[in-house]
C-alpha cells in the first residue's frame, strides 16, 4: 500500500473536484465550477457572517479525515427542494430537519465519491454517518497537526466550500 504522505495535493484537488461535480450534476442537474484552492488562511475568507448549513462526513481506514461542505442557508434550501422535487415553500413547511437531511445526504454522496476514488488507488476506508452544523459567525478549527485543504466551487451562482481535514499518518 502506498504511503499517504506520498499522495500529491493535485490528487486531492482532482478527487474532490470530481466528487463535487459528479454529485451536484447527477442529483441536482447543476454544474459545479471549480474556482481555486484558498490559501494561506482559507477560512478567514469564508465570510461566515450569515447563516450557514454545514454537512460533514468522515472517512476512516487507511486514510482518516473528514470533509465539511459549507452552504448558505438559502442555497441549502434550494438544494433540498431540487433534490426532493418540491417547491421552496413545501420544503420550508417541512422545516430544518428536511434541509439538514438533504444536505447530509449530498455530503455523504460527495465524501463517498471522494473516498471511493482513493480506495481504488489503494487507500481503502469507510464512511461515517453524516452530521450537520448550523449557525452564524462560526469557524471550525482543526487541531494543529491536521492537514487542511479548502476548495471553492460555484453552483448556480452560489458558493460551495469543501473543507478537507486529514489526520496525519500514524496518529
Amino acid at each position: 500500500m502506498p504511503a499517504t504522505q506520498d499522495i500529491p495535493d493535485a490528487v486531492f484537488e482532482e478527487t474532490i473536484t470530481k466528487a463535487v461535480k459528479e454529485v451536484f450534476s447527477t442529483m441536482l442537474g447543476q454544474p459545479a465550477i471549480y474556482q481555486a484552492v484558498t490559501a494561506p488562511n482559507p477560512l478567514d475568507s469564508l465570510a461566515l457572517d450569515h447563516a450557514h448549513v454545514v454537512g460533514t462526513v468522515g472517512f476512516i481506514g487507511s486514510l482518516n479525515g473528514l470533509i465539511y461542505l459549507y452552504l448558505d442557508v438559502k442555497f441549502a434550501e434550494q438544494c433540498a427542494a431540487n433534490l426532493l422535487g418540491m417547491s421552496a415553500a413545501e420544503v420550508a413547511d417541512l422545516g430544518d430537519e428536511a434541509v439538514n437531511d438533504a444536505i447530509g445526504e449530498l455530503t455523504n454522496m460527495t465524501v463517498g465519491t471522494f473516498k471511493n476514488q482513493l480506495s481504488d488507488r489503494g487507500f481503502p476506508c469507510k464512511l461515517t454517518i453524516p452530521s450537520i452544523l448550523r449557525g452564524t459567525n462560526f469557524s471550525i478549527e482543526p487541531i494543529s497537526s491536521a492537514t487542511r485543504r479548502v476548495y471553492r466551487f460555484e453552483i448556480a451562482g452560489q458558493p460551495l466550500i469543501a473543507d478537507l481535514l486529514m489526520q496525519p499518518p500514524g496518529e
Binding site: 463517498g112 471511493n116 481503502p124 469507510k126
Partner: peptide
Amino acid sequence: AEGGKDNVLKIAKIGVRDYIV
C-alpha cells in the same frame, strides 16, 4: 455511497442482485 472495488466485491459475495453507487 460505499463504492470502491474491494467493498463492492465483498458485499457482492454475500449475495446481491445489483449494486448502485
